[in-house]
Amino acid sequence: MNNDIFTGRLVRLSAEEPETYAENFSRWWQDSEYGRLLDMAPARLFSPKRTKEWLEKELEKDPPPVRMFGIRTLEGDNLIGFVDLSGMTPHGDAFVGIGVGEREYWGRGYGSEAMSLVLRFAFTELGLHRVSLMVFGYNLRAIRAYKKAGFKHEGRMREMIWRNNERTDALLMGVLGEEWLAQFGGAPEGK
């Protein structure tokens, strides 16, 4: 049994204090592009206090309804983003959310690797049957990364998002555990 499942070549999945998440989330949301790529709800400036209180409530539940990880670089041990699994159902489905808040790590494979690591957790530890995600039609970089991580296109909800006076579709993607294990199973990438 391979127990070294949280560390890749560029990043590792970390546990952070609610306060650390809250301070960084609040800072990352000051970048409106980050918020508009991540969330359908209007971009806003969350206070660290509100985020901390919400997270403390969620993370102290056992088992936690949201499986939240920090993304830390192996080099320098910088916290650059988060990835979480939420909405877990008794049928083995969950939604994944990911955000790389530090712009200098965009488009360099850091987020992709964090996604691979959280899928490894979902399928080899959590025992999920599938993982779902929603991504906005304008987020081409993310769509490419998700395909690379093993997600398949499952549909397109038309005209879901109204931003900059444009209507954009939302794409639904999913990956089954058996598909993922057939493609990526075995030793963690690069080990």
Binding site: T89, P90, H91, G92, D93, H129, R130, S132, E154, G155, R156, M157, R158, L172, G174, L176
Partner: peptide, 13 residues
């Protein structure tokens, strides 16, 4: 209503 999405194998029953 038009079908837009088919999320595969979401339910186990």
């Amino acid at each position: 209503f038009r079908q837009e999405v088919c999320r595969r194998e979401v339910y186990l029953r």
